[in-house]
Design a protein around this nucleic acid. Structure first.
Length: 270
DNA sequence: ATAATAACCTGAGGGC
DNA sequence: TGCCCTCAGGTTATTA
């Protein structure tokens, strides 16, 4: 469910509730996620959460010299609720905090993750081979161009390849390609440097703006406090097959790329 | 070594 | 009401 903006909004929503809080206990009800939750996760107990950070679509809780690494998968949701809040179906784990509150994780599809390390989190297997952050200086037109040259597949798949750039998922990939007027099926290595300049600018602007809107809520995702993400009101093509293109009114098309639904305007995007 | 595709799960919604 | 099918903001192991 969540792409970069949704994870970033989740991080920002967690900060006021978590930073400075001591973890009194960790209760796991269902260890089954993308990876089984490690039994020794309880070693984080007693630590204080110093910071909440994001890397790609992962949430990092810095706890002294330790780091908890969380992922929301497709349907994961974190909330901070009072102690004794009734447990619901698919509530996987609780971090019991020192102010009678709980950090609680719910995830019906179990594609999320909860890991931890006492060392450098960037050395962990899940983080070590990730590409650059799209909102960082490292994500430049030249960087994108250099990497696209090596991609013989569709440009949309390249944008979603987290070895190149992280955080762009299925919704934003369709949206930014529409704004850049590029056909999502275009072979990546045919994209010009000039087009990379446009793409990079649009990606940064779109992700940044979505963060200010609280992300995109279509079905499962909601912010930490349960409210929806208003960027859904700004989607131009995603999930709009057959509806008129916002630019030229031509009915929007849908195609499957990499097993994922892809939406575009066959007249505006080339 | 890069690229298609199968797999991991549950739940919602549509068609009959 | 219920069954069967398809689809869903992600990632990775396996195959070609």
């Amino acid at each position: 469910m969540p792409e970069l903006p949704e994870v970033e909004v989740t991080c920002q929503g967690l900060m006021p509730s978590l930073v400075g809080r001591k973890i009194l206990d960790i209760k796991v009800r269902n260890y089954s996620l993308r990876f089984p939750i490690p039994e020794d996760i309880v070693l984080l107990c007693g630590g204080v959460i110093d910071a909440v950070q994001r890397r790609a679509k992962y949430i990092l809780l810095r706890i002294g010299s330790n780091t908890a690494v969380l992922h929301l998968g497709m349907t994961g949701h974190l909330s901070v609720v009072p102690l004794n809040t009734p447990v619901e179906k698919h509530d996987h784990y609780d971090f019991i905090l020192d102010n009678d509150m709980i950090l609680r994780y719910n995830d019906p599809r179990r594609f999320g993750a909860l890991l931890w390390t006492s060392g450098d989190p960037n050395a962990m297997k899940v983080l070590s081979s990730l590409g650059v952050e799209p909102l960082s200086e490292l994500f430049s037109a030249q960087y994108l161009y250099d990497h696209l040259l090596k991609c013989k597949g569709a440009i949309k798949l390249a944008l979603m390849n987290n070895k190149i750039v992280v955080g762009i998922g299925n919704i934003y990939a369709s949206e930014v390609l529409f704004k850049a007027k590029i056909d999502p099926r275009r072979v990546a290595n045919t994209i010009t440097l000039k087009q990379c300049e446009v793409l990079v600018k649009i990606i940064k602007e779109t992700l940044q703006f979505s963060i200010t809107q609280g992300g995109t809520t279509i079905r499962n995702y909601s912010q930490v406090d349960g409210s929806r993400g208003a960027f859904a009101d700004h989607l131009q093509v995603y999930d709009r097959e057959g509806q008129p293109c916002p630019i030229c009114a031509n009915p929007l098309s849908k195609v499957i790329l990499g097993q994922r639904s892809t939406f575009y305007c066959s007249k505006c995007q080339r």
